[in-house]
């Protein structure tokens, strides 16, 4: 029988070994061999844990002022990182400030992925008028430089964490929507989606089974690069006085209030900026590492 012959040939050509890896585990495997990414991932995790555990780790009350101990240098008495212009402990304020700053880096991006990603997948998959309607609205938002849009929304809303969150989410939605739309419309015309349609599958099932899994990697890569932008932008809004209201700590606001003291304690004044820089740099490098690790066919 020729059929038997075909079976044996197929077997002969097969790579041996039963262990099979899926996409995400092969990504994790590649990441494991990238020391730079692993290092900065650890930095991020450490910072996140430190911020979460701020009440336990902070040596002082971040709101406790002291007229006597204003603007003390790094290493002054029991203040390892000095004190700010109201004599509050810098280390404690940096730890508490990390809560707001890191959250404002991650949360707007997550919200934008949920909203922009969904809109983009719908636009890309359904095409036609739905696509035109969604994408033209996105184009209008895209026509604003991101800082301007963030300041415009947050500024007119009157500032505060909530308005910053709304502003940053709106800033990130259009570009995420575009990435999702491009990836989806590419997938839409690929044969395996046609094959799924040919098997009589309804749209929602095709999107769930075949589209999401394939558009998630590019969306994820892009979103990871936005976290750094989000940290910089949210700290920037705070710096302009549009972030948390005092005395709550937040890196951007700390930088802004310490600005007048650069002549007295330059190093202490630079600390919140260093924190912002380290976080933004770490997220950027981890995003680069992810891009490399996820740029695999499988």
């Amino acid at each position: 029988m020729p059929a038997d012959a075909t079976i044996t040939t197929a077997q002969a050509g097969a790579p041996a070994g039963p262990a099979r890896r899926g996409y995400w585990s092969s990504v994790a495997e590649r990441l494991r061999h990238d020391p730079v990414t692993v290092f900065f991932l650890c930095v991020i995790l450490l910072a996140a844990v430190a911020a979460l555990l701020a009440p336990v780790l902070a040596p002082h009350d971040p709101y406790e002022t002291s007229m006597l101990k204003r603007l003390k240098p790094v290493g002054f008495e029991e203040h390892p990182l000095g004190t700010d212009e109201l004599g509050r402990d810098m280390l404690s304020r940096l730890l508490y400030g990390g809560r707001v700053s890191i959250m404002m880096g991650v949360l707007p991006v997550l919200l934008a992925v949920a909203i922009g990603g969904t809109l983009g997948v719908l636009a890309g998959f359904l095409g036609g008028l739905v696509n035109t309607a969604i994408m033209r609205v996105m184009d209008v938002f895209y026509a604003f430089p991101s800082v301007l849009l963030a300041v415009a929304i947050s500024g007119t809303l009157g500032g505060g964490i909530a308005s910053g969150l709304v502003a940053l989410t709106l800033v990130f939605i259009p570009s995420l929507c575009r990435v999702a739309e491009t990836a989806t419309s590419q997938i839409r015309s690929v044969d395996f989606v046609e094959a799924a349609r040919a098997s009589g599958a309804p749209t929602h099932s095709i999107i769930r089974a075949h589209v999401i899994g394939n558009v998630l990697p590019p969306i994820f890569i892009y979103a990871s690069s936005l976290v750094s932008v989000s940290i910089l932008l949210s700290a920037g809004l705070s710096f302009l006085g549009l972030g948390v209201s005092p005395p709550v700590a937040d890196w951007g606001a700390m930088l802004s209030s310490l600005r007048q003291a650069v002549y007295v304690q330059p190093l202490v004044c630079a600390l919140p900026g260093i924190a912002i820089f380290v976080m933004s740099l770490s997220f950027n490098l981890v995003s680069d590492g992810l891009r490399h690790a996820m740029d695999v066919k499988a």
Binding site: R20, G22, Y23, V190, D191, F192, E194, A195, A196, A198, S199, G200, A201, P202, S205, A209, H210, G213, N214, K297, A298
Partner: peptide, 29 residues
Amino acid sequence: MQMVFQDSSSSLNPRMPIEDSVAYGPRVH
């Protein structure tokens, strides 16, 4: 009536084990 496509690589979902790709049709039905 079913169809077999020309490009064998683009006609399979790269993120799905082939068993799931084959089982997808019956699951949908």
